[in-house]
């Protein structure tokens, strides 16, 4: 294992993040505060408790997941797409590193950035609502796993994308709707039966449900199923990345 190379990629990618630290830090703080003002205070005061939790607190896991998933995907996809776009990918391909090391470097950095943002939102949320954490270890595990699995997905998107439009396409058209419709702001049990069934086909439901269980000990689906879903999603992403590197698809003619 070329640890120096992994470190070089990781440090290089994190430096990009720190160059725009204020933006990286302020943006999630501001958007989370706005969500609390709109959903927690203005609308939330008219909504009863959900599963025995105040609405303001109920939306926190969903809000964190929303940011973490989109940030992990965006950071990883941009991280690997940018070298392709400006041509510096030649250096990665001609260095004595394996594809596994490239993935660890880029995905590790993207997941770290998403994790940082997730923690910032969690801390910000504590200023607005009382937030119990019933299963702290599970909460951290769900958060870290989600950061990594969506960074893997972002990496695939970055390799696939042929232009900046395609880079935005999947996050915009698939991930954001799935997260919004995956129970970020409501409990699945609040939906009519038909929609409950349809919603179960949304993989994000299982992630948000599991994460919410870690906070409030109540979930839409059993936590084991949530773990299985995120494990499966991670495995699928790893499988696709393995295939990409075996065939050199879109990176190596």
């Amino acid at each position: 294992m070329n640890w120096q190379a992994i470190k070089a990629i990781y440090v290089f990618e994190m430096a990009r993040f720190f160059r725009t630290l204020m933006q990286s830090f302020l943006s999630p703080v501001l958007s989370t505060s706005l969500y609390f003002v709109v959903f927690g205070t203005a609308i939330g005061s008219r909504i009863q408790e959900v599963d025995g939790v105040s609405y303001g607190a109920f939306i926190v896991p969903g809000l964190i997941m929303l940011s973490v998933m989109t940030q992990a995907t965006a950071n990883a996809s941009f991280g690997i797409y940018f070298p392709k776009f400006i041509g510096t990918i030649y250096e990665l391909l001609s260095a004595p590193i394996s594809f596994l090391e490239i993935v660890i470097g880029y995905v590790g950095a993207a997941a770290t950035k998403a994790l940082f943002i997730g923690v910032v939102i969690l801390v910000t949320a504590n200023f607005f609502v009382d937030l119990p954490v019933a299963h702290p270890v599970a909460m951290v595990a769900f958060l870290v796993l989600t950061c990594f699995s969506f960074a893997l997905l972002g990496f695939i998107i970055g390799i696939w994308a042929g232009n900046f439009e395609q880079l935005q396409l999947i996050p915009l058209l698939i991930i954001t709707p799935l997260v919004f419709l995956g129970g970020s702001f409501y409990s699945i049990s609040m939906l009519p039966p038909v929609w409950q069934t349809i919603t179960m086909f949304n993989p994000v439901v299982y992630l948000i449900s599991g994460f919410r269980w870690a906070f409030f000990d109540a979930a839409d689906v059993p936590v084991g199923v949530s773990l299985l879903a995120i494990g499966l999603f991670t495995l699928i992403c790893v499988g696709i990345i393995g295939w990409i590197f075996k065939t050199g698809w879109r990176i190596k003619p």
Binding site: Q4, A5, I97
Partner: peptide, 10 residues
């Protein structure tokens, strides 16, 4: 510095 690191050199 990044290039040197990529090649596994301290």
């Amino acid at each position: 510095r990044f290039s040197r690191g990529l090649f596994g050199k301290p």
